[in-house]
Design a protein around this nucleic acid. Structure first.
Length: 413
DNA sequence: TCTGGGGTCCTAGGACCC
DNA sequence: TCTGGGGTCCTAGGACCC
């Protein structure tokens, strides 16, 4: 049966990548439409609604101001980025703020230099999660095969969805875009391509509120001119190394022989680089996944010292353990690898973990074993960040049977 | 102007078992 | 006593992603 594949109506694999536009900032604009078009940066800080309402009542006492009036708070009452003090980074920025060079993951102190007049708002995680569920639900109503890639991103398999083949996926992409806008008031960008790798790159082509359709035949014209860094999986390190070999674009990468790439980048990564440069990616859209680990970490307001700031550090450590325990319990998981993470003042990261005999989600137990891990790191240096992690997870109720363990060696001392 | 928090996956060495 | 492999688990670090 070698002939049945190439009828005119044959379905071809069409995968979409959907990315919400400036998601965290856009969620804030739903509440404060008066900020539309202005530079807004999301991150750090705290909610200032009470402050703003108090100022409103003071300035305009003749009117009864309530929490319903958030959309009427004058723009000049909002906190400005220039007033920010601290170690936070920008989660996202509106397109107006990006004009000034502000981008996500940028330190807020730096962002304040670039665009001091930008309005600074903290992330409203509850609202972000609510809208995230809403837009994903909207997509699943139309196309059921959806892979979660975080709060603001998904892959969607268009292949077998009605309309998913029309105009290379553009018709379905338009429908999804429109439905999400109706449900949430937010825009997104969608790329549709033969696989996840290309779809991911394509969704960036016409941001914001764009749709891009890429076919395998477009590889040389649309993909090869792009910098290697655009490949999902090529980060700063790999990119620098590629550049060192004179490879700047995906097209240049494709011209290298596979054995050369394997020789310089390793058997696995080198072969993968060769595949992706030719646009090949057979990964399926994964509709479900189980968590591998859960963790909590925090960066201190100032660097702490294990001895001099013992009490403060201890309280934070206990709190982190309690939070991880809560997360595990709320989601119904237990784990048996417990570990700590430290970032020293020079940004060096160290981790220690240990695997215990029984699965747990108990805060005291986590605290005890994490405490032992902490004793194995250098505590004479100043610490910037502390984290607690529980791994080797199992769903509560599906805990694997205890393996036979050799008896603990006798204590010699 | 120094760089958040929550994850996944890979590598590599050592222990230990068959 | 010496020499092998293969396989799995554990730990630490690192790259990368959202």
């Amino acid at each position: 049966m070698l002939t049945a594949v190439t009828t005119p109506t044959a379905r071809i694999r069409r995968i979409a990548h959907l990315d919400m536009d400036a998601f965290f900032a856009s969620v804030e604009l739903l509440r404060y439409p008066q900020l539309k078009g202005l530079p807004v940066v999301i991150g750090g800080g705290r909610r200032r609604e009470d402050d703003m309402l108090a100022r409103l009542r003071e300035t305009y006492p003749e009117r009864e101001w309530t929490g319903e009036d958030l959309a009427h708070i004058p723009v000049e009452f909002f906190p400005r980025l220039e007033t920010y003090v601290g170690r936070g980074v920008a989660t996202t920025a509106t397109y107006a703020a990006r004009q000034f060079g502000v981008g996500s993951a940028m330190g807020l102190m730096k962002a304040a230099k670039l665009c001091p007049q930008a309005i600074l708002l903290p992330v409203d995680f509850d609202e972000v999660r609510r809208i995230s569920r809403l837009f994903k639900h909207t997509i699943r109503e139309i196309a059921p095969t959806v892979e979660d890639r975080g709060v603001d991103e998904v892959y969607i398999d268009f292949t077998d969805v009605p309309g998913g083949q029309r105009e290379g996926g553009r018709v379905l992409a338009r429908l999804i875009q429109k439905s999400i806008f109706q449900a949430t008031g937010l825009t997104c960008s969608i790329g549709v391509a033969p696989n996840k790798l290309i779809a991911k790159m394509a969704s960036e082509f016409h941001k914001p509120n764009g749709i891009s359709i890429v076919h395998m035949e477009d590889l040389q014209t649309l993909i090869w001119p792009l910098p290697c860094r655009k490949i999902n999986g090529v980060g700063p390190k790999a990119d620098a190394k590629l550049q060192g070999h004179g490879i700047h674009t995906i097209g240049e990468l494709a011209q290298r022989e596979r054995p050369w790439l394997v020789a310089h980048f390793g058997k696995s990564y080198g072969a993968w680089l060769h595949e992706v440069s030719w646009g090949r990616d057979e990964r399926a859209v994964q509709t479900e996944s189980e968590p591998v680990s859960m963790s909590r970490e925090t960066t201190f307001d100032r660097d702490l010292h294990a001895v001099r700031d013992r009490a403060e550090l201890g309280a934070i450590f206990t709190r982190l353990c309690e939070q991880v325990a809560e997360d595990l319990q709320r989601k119904g998981y237990v784990g048996k690898t417990i570990g700590v993470k430290l970032r020293y003042d020079n940004f060096q990261i160290v981790t220690r973990d240990s695997t215990i005999a029984h699965f747990t989600s108990d805060a005291a137990s986590i605290r005890r074993h994490a405490g032992l891990c902490l004793k194995r790191v250098d505590l004479t240096r100043r610490i910037r960040l502390l984290g607690v992690r529980v791994g080797s997870l199992a769903k509560l109720g599906e805990v694997p049977p205890e393996p036979e363990r050799p008896p603990e060696p006798a204590q010699l001392f």
